[in-house]
Design a protein around this nucleic acid. Sequence first.
RNA 1: CGAGGUAUGGCUCAGCCCGGCUAGAGCACCUGCUUUGGGAGCAGGGGGUCGCAGGUUCGAAUCCUGCUACCUCGACCA
Length: 477
Amino acid sequence: MAKGVTKQSVDFSKWYNDVVKLAQLADHGPVKGTMVMRPYGYAIWELIQKELDQRFKATGHVNAYFPTFIPQSFLEKEAEHVEGFAPEVAVVTHGGGKKLEEPLIVRPTSETIIWHMYKKWISSYRDLPLLINQWANVFRWEMRPRLFIRTTEFLWQEGHTAHATAEEAQEETLKMLEVYREFSENVLGMPVIVGQKSENEKFAGAVNTYSIEAMMRDGKALQAGTSHYLGQNFAKAFDVTFQNTDNNPEFVYATSWGVSTRLIGAVIMTHGDDKGLILPPNIAPFQIVFVPIFKTEDEKILVMSKVDDISTALLKKNVRVKIDDDETKSPGFKFNEWEMRGVPMRVEIGHRDISENHAKVVTRHNGVKEFISLDNLASMLFDKLTTIQNELFERAVLYREENTSTVETWEEFKQVLNDKGGFIKAYWDGSRETENKIKEETKATIRIIPFNSKATERTCVYSGQPAQYEVIFAKAY
RNA sequence: CGAGGUAUGGCUCAGCCCGGCUAGAGCACCUGCUUUGGGAGCAGGGGGUCGCAGGUUCGAAUCCUGCUACCUCGACCA
């Protein structure tokens, strides 16, 4: 049927595209890889922004805005950075009808222009730390775009901080990683594994990259957020020094950290099912949808006044409510429509219900239908939002555990990856060569080196050499 | 960027192989009436220079060339 989404088991990619389009989250723009975020999808982003922004402010950061255009020469000042980003950068060569003296790059990330400015603003340890975040769009010319997950232009936030000591900068890096973890788990209901990236996977220009990794329902890994300790790399490239308390000049220590609209893709693929989207209440544009059911004008007046009473009580508790009173659509259509669009709870109220003093409440993620007394309906619904939020997280944790395997041998590794997929815990010798060979043979990469990873007395699953870490391997987005 | 596939009304597709009257269907949309508790029914109606550009031909949705976009798989990546 054209009305439903493709089943996940039939074709997960198609399922994802169906959900994005049918739930009206986003559409393709006319230029390859560009995305139009439709109102429903953008509303989710606004909720994500609000929650994150509160957390950034609470940890002492302030927002600012830097320009999109960056002189090409800036990118070239940090060797690893230019090597990493040059292949995917868009370049402006003409302006005002004339060829520019120096081409401008359209920011793929803002480290360079921000550190150019930081040089002007930092001269003493008293100017530090400098804790700035910006909400912006960035551009990366990707080969294989995918709505929300990988688009040519995307929205994100990027924090850029400057510190007087390495210790303080490292502390900041981990502090923001923890903000991302807490946000992902409590707001998005998405469990993540926190840890460090291998040399192969780290940010171009960073000393260390840390990330949160999530498992999607097809068993693949998605990097949901990163936090980088940049050391003095950018300070040296842009000559940013400060006078320390001993009156000596010293290069500034830096961090950067970001999450993007990719998080929306992550939510879709963490919670969704064959009926479509499932949104955790904390980021659902509509947390509860009311479907009033009536035949006559008298019934309509009765039903609508009751719906208004309950929704008003909910609005007072800041619950986001949608009353679907569109009389041109049948109730059955609305049930399917709002389930597909992921609204956490639906309340059906008709004439019959009112005479029996109850309403039918249907919970999206588990399909449970129950009658609840109208007397305490508003408070029951309010409480259930928290329950649903928790259940979604628990369910996602369980799914991840079920699809995580621990392997000892290389044969087992290949077999599990092939038969089951998901996350594979295995020991690794810490070498780039081994990681590359595993990638060549299986397409799986080291997604993360979890914190507290220990590998004493163990050997590498591939090379048989003494192991340095127990890591998570997976195929990734 | 490499391999394969697709492009016909808003959507899903048929027609193409083997060129030929006015390009079809289902869904969606509009109007009217009847309906409304899991994707309503009947009747009437509107909408397509067949992705774009060029070529072959008396004649092209159909054959040929180029381009673009999208999908799947690879390499790259938040």
